[in-house]
Simulated scan of single mutants.
Amino acid sequence: MSYLHSYLTAVGGLLAGLAAAAPLIVWQRRILLYQRRALADRARDRDRWYRLATRNETTDLPNRRALLTHLDATLSLGEPLGLVLVDLDRFKHVNDVHGHEHGNDLLTEVGRRLSAIGPPVVLAVHLSGDEFALAVHGDTADTAAAAHTAHRRISHRPYDIAGQQISLTASVGYAVAAPHMLSRDLLHAADQAMYLAKRASTGLHAHDPARDTPGPAARYRDLP
């Protein structure tokens, strides 16, 4: 009998202990669940802010920051790299005639066409306004081919925006990275080529270090 009594007493104590500990276990589980949710929310916020920092809000394409990060990484590896800059001609007229909302729709469609080019184009970027860029992993021939493809895709067929047919042309400049070149130098070289294409109304221009004026060049948008 004493053995049974001792057993029942032990079981009773165990059950009492479990009953006392139950609220604590529930509370610990709630804390763990809260922590997991907080970490998930924090990760989502981090991803959202990163996306806002590296994406153009109009077209959702990578932006200038994303481009410079990619150029820096590629140049640091010594890989062949070309850059194509694309500026839409007379885009202000499109906004004036069709409105900014339709203008944004047009920019989005331009971004889609450029994004669909594929290798050796590895990144299609919306820099700002009506200006786009393509990062090319390749040599001069690859970069020239990408520039011609971009020019053709933008202008070869009209855009259907809200039931209206809108035609576009573009000025395209391109450059290839030289040894020890920095991202800002490559961007400047392609920018200068795009300015020359705009000024000469040729549509396309390749940066030539031996011919093009070195140093800061006036941008077409800076001209009177």
Rank of each mutant, 00 (worst) to 15 (best):
L81T: 15
S183H: 07
H126K: 06
N104F: 02
L71H: 06
D89F: 00
L67F: 06
A53C: 14
S167K: 06
Y195W: 11
V122Q: 09
N56H: 14
A193L: 04
G138M: 09
F132L: 06
L134Q: 05
T74Y: 07
A135C: 14
V125W: 03
L134G: 01
D96L: 09
Y174D: 06
E101G: 10
R51I: 05
L83T: 06
L107S: 01
L168T: 02
E57Y: 12
M194Y: 04
A133I: 03
A146Q: 04
H180S: 13
D130V: 00
L68R: 14
H180C: 08
V122R: 13
D160M: 12
R153I: 01
E57Q: 15
R51W: 08
H102W: 07
T108R: 14
Y174R: 05
H151M: 05
E131M: 03
A175K: 04
D130L: 03
R113W: 03
P158W: 13
I154P: 00
G111I: 04
H137C: 09
G99P: 01
T140V: 10
A147Q: 04
L71V: 15
E109D: 12
R153Y: 04
T108C: 15
Q164P: 03
A124N: 07
G118M: 08
V94P: 01
M181Y: 07
H151D: 03
A145M: 11
H188E: 09
N95W: 07
S128I: 10
A116Q: 10
D72V: 11
T140F: 08
A145E: 11
L77D: 10
S115K: 14
V176L: 11
V94L: 02
